[in-house]
Amino acid sequence: MSIQHFRVALIPFFAAFCLPVFAHPETLVKVKDAEDQLGARVGYIELDLNSGKILESFRPEERFPMMSTFKVLLCGAVLSRVDAGQEQLGRRIHYSQNDLVEYSPVTEKHLTDGMTVRELCSAAITMSDNTAANLLLTTIGGPKELTAFLHNMGDHVTRLDRWEPELNEAIPNDERDTTMPAAMATTLRKLLTGELLTLASRQQLIDWMEADKVAGPLLRSALPAGWFIADKSGAGERGSRGIIAALGPDGKPSRIVVIYTTGSQATMDERNRQIAEIGASLIKHW
C-alpha cells in the first residue's frame, strides 16, 4: 500500500482519535458579512469528516447552483462504474471539434489522439474542462443518470439537468442544476469515506481534487503551510461562485467545507476574496 493510499485508508482512524471539535460562531459572522459585502445569498456548511456531524452552517438547506462543483460527483459516478466493471479508466475516447464547448483548455489539445477516461476526469476536476465533463456525462448516460446515481446514494436534493455550459445559467428560483450545502457536503463525505467506492477509487477521487489547479484564489489562499486540501470550485452566471473541499491540518483532511453564493453584482475577484476570507476565519478558529 502506498503512503497516499495509507493516508486515505486511515482518515477515519486518525479522526477518531482527534480531540473533540467545537464550532466557532466567528466564522458564521464572516459568512454573514460576506453576504453584506456581496449583496447576495451565501450558503455555508462545515462537517466533521469522521462523524458527519454538522459543526457550523448557514442557509444549509437553500438551493444554490452547483456550477462546476458537480464534476466531482460526476467522476465519482464514473469511478463507481469502474468498480462495477462497467468502465475502464484506460479506455480512450475520441471526439471532434464539434464536441468542444466553451472553456476546454485540455480537451482542445487532444482532438487528434483523444483522451482516456482517467485523463478526462483529471481534466474535468483539476482544470474544470467543460468538454471533458460533457464527454464523461455521455459515458454514464447524461445528466439524468448522474441525478439517479445521487438518488441511489441517498441524495434526493442534488440534481443535474443540463450539460456544460448551460448548467451554469443560475436563474433565480430555478431548481435545475442545483444542490443544497448540506446535501453536497453529505454526498461528498460519502464519496470520500464511505463504502460506495473502493479504496482505490476513493484515493483516485481525492487525488484529482488535491491536484486542483484553478481554485488557488479561494480556500487555498488562506491555508497555512502543512495543511491538506482537496477541492473543486465552480463559477456561473449572475454572480455565482462555489467551492467544495476536504481539508485539515497535519497533512490530512478532517472536515468537509461547502460554500456557495449566487445573485451578486460583485466582480469575480471580490467573490473570490470573500470566500478566501471565510476560509481564513475557519482556519483561525479551527
Rank of each mutant, 00 (worst) to 15 (best):
H24T: 11
H24E: 06
P25L: 02
E26L: 11
E26D: 01
E26G: 11
T27S: 10
L28I: 11
K30R: 15
K30N: 15
V31T: 10
D33G: 12
D36A: 11
D36F: 14
Q37Y: 10
G39T: 11
G43V: 09
Y44D: 03
Y44A: 02
I45V: 12
I45W: 10
L49E: 00
N50M: 12
S51F: 01
G52C: 01
K53I: 12
I54V: 10
L55C: 03
L55G: 04
L55T: 08
E56Y: 04
R59D: 02
P60F: 04
P60R: 04
E61Y: 04
R63Y: 11
R63K: 03
P65S: 03
M66K: 02
M67Q: 01
M67N: 01
S68T: 09
S68I: 05
T69E: 02
F70G: 05
F70W: 15
F70V: 06
F70I: 03
K71V: 15
V72I: 06
V72T: 10
V72A: 03
L73Y: 03
G76H: 05
L79T: 02
S80C: 06
R81H: 08
R81G: 08
R81D: 12
V82D: 05
D83N: 02
G85A: 07
G85E: 05
E87R: 06
Q88C: 01
Q88D: 08
G90K: 05
G90N: 05
R91C: 03
I93D: 00
H94W: 12
S96T: 07
S96D: 07
S96N: 10
Q97N: 00
N98Q: 02
D99H: 11
D99L: 07
L100A: 06
V101R: 15
E102S: 00
Y103R: 08
Y103M: 14
Y103D: 14
T107K: 01
E108D: 03
E108K: 10
E108F: 07
H110K: 09
T112N: 04
T112V: 05
D113S: 09
D113H: 11
G114Y: 09
R118L: 11
E119K: 01
C121V: 01
C121D: 00
S122M: 09
A124G: 03
A124Q: 01
T126Y: 07
T126R: 14
T126V: 11
N130A: 15
T131H: 06
A133Q: 03
A133L: 09
A133T: 00
A133Y: 06
L137T: 04
L137Y: 00
T138I: 06
T139F: 06
I140D: 05
P143G: 08
L146D: 06
A148K: 03
L150T: 03
L150I: 13
L150A: 03
H151R: 05
H151K: 10
N152Y: 15
G154E: 09
G154P: 04
D155W: 11
H156T: 11
H156F: 12
H156G: 09
V157E: 09
R162Q: 00
E164I: 11
E166H: 04
L167F: 05
I171R: 02
I171F: 00
I171C: 06
I171D: 01
P172D: 01
P172C: 05
N173V: 05
E175S: 04
D177Y: 00
T178Y: 11
T179P: 13
T179D: 15
M180Q: 13
M180T: 11
M180P: 14
A183R: 00
A183Y: 02
M184K: 12
M184H: 12
A185C: 11
A185T: 13
T186W: 13
L188M: 00
L188R: 15
K190F: 14
L191C: 11
L192R: 11
E195D: 03
T198M: 04
S201T: 05
S201F: 01
R202D: 02
Q203I: 01
Q203G: 02
Q204V: 10
Q204L: 08
D207W: 00
M209Q: 09
E210Y: 05
E210W: 08
A211N: 13
A211E: 06
D212H: 15
D212F: 00
K213F: 06
K213N: 01
V214G: 15
A215C: 15
A215E: 15
L219A: 12
L219C: 14
R220H: 14
A225F: 14
A225H: 09
G226K: 11
G226L: 05
I229H: 10
I229V: 12
A230Y: 05
K232H: 13
G234L: 06
G234Y: 13
G236Y: 13
R238G: 00
R238S: 01
G239Y: 03
S240R: 14
S240Q: 00
R241V: 13
G242W: 03
A246S: 11
A246L: 09
L247R: 12
G248L: 06
D250C: 12
G251S: 09
K252V: 09
K252D: 10
P253F: 11
P253R: 10
S254E: 06
R255W: 03
I256S: 11
V257H: 15
V258L: 05
I259S: 10
I259R: 11
Y260W: 13
T261M: 13
G263A: 00
G263M: 00
G263P: 00
S264W: 03
Q265H: 10
M268H: 15
D269T: 11
E270C: 14
R271Y: 15
R271Q: 13
N272F: 07
R273M: 07
I275G: 10
I275D: 06
A276N: 13
E277W: 09
I278Q: 14
I278W: 08
I278H: 11
G279V: 15
G279N: 08
A280V: 12
A280G: 11
S281F: 10
I283R: 09
